[in-house]
Every structure is written in structure tokens, then in C-alpha cells.
């Protein structure tokens, strides 16, 4: 087998491996992308771009680490870069307020009506919307850290490697992000945090 034929065979085998990995992790990666972006259209765009980059640089993938860890590193970095570039969502602190057109001050986190659905909508769906809305109000670094820890279940060390930062920074981001998220959920669903329901 010539060198060119050998390289082509390796290339084809690599493509097959990549296709198998996409099929295996697509649903999980889509879930992460959706929790980060908050809607299907942006999640599809983000996912497509992330998989395209993974496809281009697949020869650099170190097989000793799980594919989803390597892919999440691409996905989250891409998300943060895109978030900063587009600047579509503003980042506000929980205590911040803004001035309305009438000159009155309104709290920044006076969330839009989270119950556009009919009354029979299940509490689970409403709670999910509230959490998703709360996630979208976090800064991108906090959101990525919380999603990777609480939804993906990665360790702090893995998250630090994905976000190219220290474990101490990850610990701080998760703690602050989780506290902000708790306050947002507590605001709309205080019953969830009542003493008897904290189980």
C-alpha cells in the first residue's frame, strides 16, 4: 500500500470514527447547546459550528480524553466568543436596576411573564422555563460553569481544562452563578425553598 493510499485509508477511518462519535453524543451536545443559548435556533447554529470545528481539527483530538470533554471545550469557547462578539444579551448584577422611559426605576430582573402557556401547563414546565430564563441572565462564564457542573456533571478540574482557567476560578464562578440562579428561582417559586420542601 502506497503512502497516499495509506493516508487515505487512515483519513476514511477517521471520518468513520467522527461520524460514530457525532451519532453517539449529538443529543447530549444539543442539550448543552440549548441550555447555553436558550433557544433551538441558536443551539443549532452553535452546535453546527462546534461540530464543524471538531471535524476540521479532529486529527488533534487526544484519544486519551473523553470525546465529549474535548468537544465541550470547543463548544463553550465558541459560545463565549460568539456571545461577546454579538453582545446580544446584557449582563446585569442582581442588585442592578435601570431607568424606564417614564423616568422610574425598575428592577433589572423583573422577568417577563413566564406563563404564556395556559393554566393547565404543568408546574414542571413552568419551573423549567424559570430556570432557563435564570440561566440566560447569568454572565456567559457563570452560565457555562454552572451548566457544565450541574447539567453535564463534570468535575471542577475538567471544567477548568475546558474553560482554560484555574480550578479556583471555576469554583468561584460556579458558586456565584449558582447563588444568582437560586435568587432568581426563589423570586418566582419561593415555595420551592420553603423549609419543608428543601429535600
Amino acid at each position: 500500500m502506497t503512502h497516499t493510499a495509506l493516508a487515505q485509508a487512515v483519513n476514511e477511518r477517521s471520518h468513520e470514527e467522527f461520524d460514530a462519535l457525532v451519532n453517539r453524543y449529538y443529543h447530549q451536545a444539543y442539550n448543552t447547546a440549548y441550555r447555553l443559548t436558550g433557544n433551538h435556533a441558536d443551539a443549532e447554529d452553535l452546535l453546527q459550528e462546534a461540530f464543524l470545528r471538531a471535524y476540521r481539527f479532529f486529527d488533534r483530538y487526544d484519544r486519551s480524553m473523553p470525546f465529549i470533554n474535548w468537544f465541550n471545550r470547543i463548544l463553550t469557547n465558541l459560545y463565549i466568543d460568539e456571545y461577546r462578539r454579538r453582545g446580544r444579551l446584557r449582563t446585569l448584577s442582581l442588585d442592578e436596576s435601570y431607568e424606564t422611559e417614564d423616568g422610574e426605576e425598575a428592577p433589572a430582573f423583573d422577568l417577563p411573564d413566564l406563563s404564556p402557556s395556559p393554566m393547565e401547563l404543568a408546574l414542571q414546565k413552568e419551573l423549567e422555563d424559570a430556570i432557563q430564563e435564570g440561566l440566560s441572565l447569568l454572565s456567559p462564564e457563570f452560565r457555562v460553569a454552572v451548566v457544565l457542573a450541574d447539567i453535564e456533571g463534570h468535575s471542577y478540574e475538567e471544567i477548568a481544562e475546558m474553560m482554560n482557567t484555574s480550578v479556583g476560578t471555576v469554583r468561584s464562578r460556579i458558586h456565584r452563578g449558582r447563588k444568582q440562579l437560586r435568587n432568581l428561582i426563589m423570586k418566582h417559586h419561593p415555595n420551592l425553598f420553603e423549609r419543608g420542601d428543601l429535600k
Binding site: V22, Y30, R35, E44, F51, V146, I151, K179, M186
Partner: peptide, 28 residues
């Protein structure tokens, strides 16, 4: 409260994709 917040996050259902991996691979 922090433990409950994490518990709520972990209870979030897995989102159903609107596209399939075959569609994505074809685009790629």
C-alpha cells in the same frame, strides 16, 4: 438552598433536538 438549586438543575429534562445527527453530518 444551594443544594436544592443544584437538584433542580439536575432534574431538567433532556431537550429533544429539532434536528438529527444525520442532518448535521450531511451539512458538515
Amino acid at each position: 438552598t444551594l443544594r436544592k438549586t443544584k437538584s433542580l438543575m439536575r432534574q431538567l429534562p433532556l431537550v429533544q433536538p429539532t434536528t438529527s445527527p444525520e442532518w448535521l453530518l450531511a451539512r458538515l
